[in-house]
């Protein structure tokens, strides 16, 4: 059953993949990474050579953790 499912999935994936891969072939691609902030929390950075557009949603933010006093 697993093998039937896998073969079917590969066929379907290949079918969908072909035109899309060509569309992206000549373009720069970017990937979003989350990086840690000094005070806690995360922000984004773009890394060249990923798999999708690098469009920050803006949801991430740096915090200010309670300090040692």
């Amino acid at each position: 059953m697993k093998k039937v499912f896998a073969v079917t999935s590969i066929f379907a994936a290949t079918f969908f993949l072909m035109p899309h891969a060509e569309t992206f072939a000549g373009e720069e691609v970017w990937q979003i990474e989350r990086i840690q902030c000094d005070g806690g929390g995360e922000v984004y950075r773009c890394r060249f050579d990923g798999s999708s557009g690098c469009d920050f949603g803006g949801q991430k933010h740096c915090d200010e953790v309670s300090s040692i006093n």
Partner: peptide, 28 residues
């Protein structure tokens, strides 16, 4: 470029299918 817009829903689905396949095959 128009094709990209038309395929926005297809691309995640395609990746999902690829990964199901790879997990199934490698998992064995």
């Amino acid at each position: 470029m128009a094709f990209i817009h038309e395929c926005h829903f297809i691309y995640p689905m395609m990746r999902y299918l690829i990964w199901i396949s790879i997990f199934t095959l490698f998992g064995c």
